[in-house]
């Protein structure tokens, strides 16, 4: 790094960082790891030097000497390191569960506000869901206890696609119901012309596009574009697919492959958490957000196309 002074870097540390969250680790722990690494790197740089204090010594009746000595109260060994993880505000803009891996956005310092706007604007996320037919578990995941077994030989790819497209259309219908318009009306048509609409409520999960991208029975991979989803919703979704195909299914992996304009390429792996990498990543993210201003300040309720390049 060319800059050697920590305060300069500290002033640059504001914005969004895009990291890759592995499965079987909580967002909290990942946040802790990121902050600890950033602070350790900052402390290793040239920090603010120790302040000085004036000491007047000697006998007041005779001559007094005035000295300037370093103020020990300001030494890192006495007051502690200059940068502490607790003093670096950071918040995530999308929460991923324990079993989910994929893109996670952190807002650092002033970036926490950006993270909040991003979260409240409910951008679309894309997930890759890996599932296996034939077994159902109590928690819908591979780690759970097997509660049911069934045959899966009769399931073909066309069955799967038929089912997925029907689910997709029912979700599209639901979108208009949430808007409070009759499907047969002119207003519904006017809304539909503008493109897909976002839900106003943050509690209703909505699936916009569902696609089966790999089918090697008993394993299958589904790509889902959704808003307001959570881990348990997606696992029950896989379970539902299993039952509707007259079989059973459980989820083996959940991966968030895209979050609005952020893709896996932008994500920073946990082992790459260094100050330099974080800063470069932050810069890339800010450029992307600059290109897609709709992500932070929306003009209309309908979804707009996003520039991922």
């Amino acid at each position: 790094m060319l800059v050697k002074e920590a305060p300069v870097i500290w002033n640059l540390l504001k914005g969004i960082v895009c990291v890759y969250k592995p499965a079987e680790i909580t967002c909290e722990n990942l946040r802790k790891a990121l902050l600890a690494k950033i602070c350790a790197d900052l402390n290793n740089m040239e920090c603010r030097s120790i302040s000085e204090r004036v000491v007047i010594e000697g006998n007041p009746l005779e001559k007094l000497t005035v000295n300037v000595v370093p103020n020990l109260a300001d030494h890192p060994a006495v007051v502690g390191p200059r940068y502490l993880p607790d003093e670096l505000p950071a918040s995530w803009s999308n929460y991923l569960g324990w079993n989910t891996c994929g893109i996670l956005l952190f807002g650092l310092r002033e970036g926490t506000r950006t993270a909040k706007y991003l979260r409240e604007n409910r951008p679309m996320r894309a997930y890759k869901l890996k599932g296996t037919l034939g077994k159902a578990t109590d928690n819908g995941l591979a780690s759970g206890k097997v509660v049911e077994k069934s045959t899966w030989k009769h399931v073909t790819k066309s069955h799967m696609e038929k089912l997925l497209s029907s689910i997709q259309s029912s979700h599209q219908k639901q979108m208009f119901q949430l808007c409070g318009v009759d499907l047969q009306s002119q207003t519904a048509y006017d809304l539909a012309v503008q493109g897909p609409i976002r839900p106003a409520n943050s509690k209703v999960p909505l699936l916009y596009g569902i696609k089966c991208i790999e089918f090697t029975p008993p394993n299958f991979v589904i790509e889902v574009h959704c808003i307001n989803e959570n881990e348990s919703y997606l696992t029950t979704f896989i379970h539902e697919i299993g039952t509707k195909l007259h079989s059973t299914a459980h989820c083996t992996a959940l991966q968030c492959v895209r979050h609005s304009c952020f893709t896996l390429e932008d994500a920073l792996l946990k082992k790459h958490f260094t100050l330099q990498n974080v800063l470069t990543n932050m810069e890339k993210c800010s450029i992307k957000l600059e290109e897609n201003k709709d992500l932070l300040y929306q003009k209309s309720a309908s979804l707009t196309s996003i520039n991922t390049e």
Partner: peptide, 20 residues
């Protein structure tokens, strides 16, 4: 914290010199 004491306290200064 010790920071408010260290400039006046000889014992804390000795510990500081020891690298504590």
């Amino acid at each position: 914290n010790f920071a408010s004491y260290i400039n006046k306290s000889p014992i804390l200064q000795e510990f500081f010199k020891l690298g504590v």
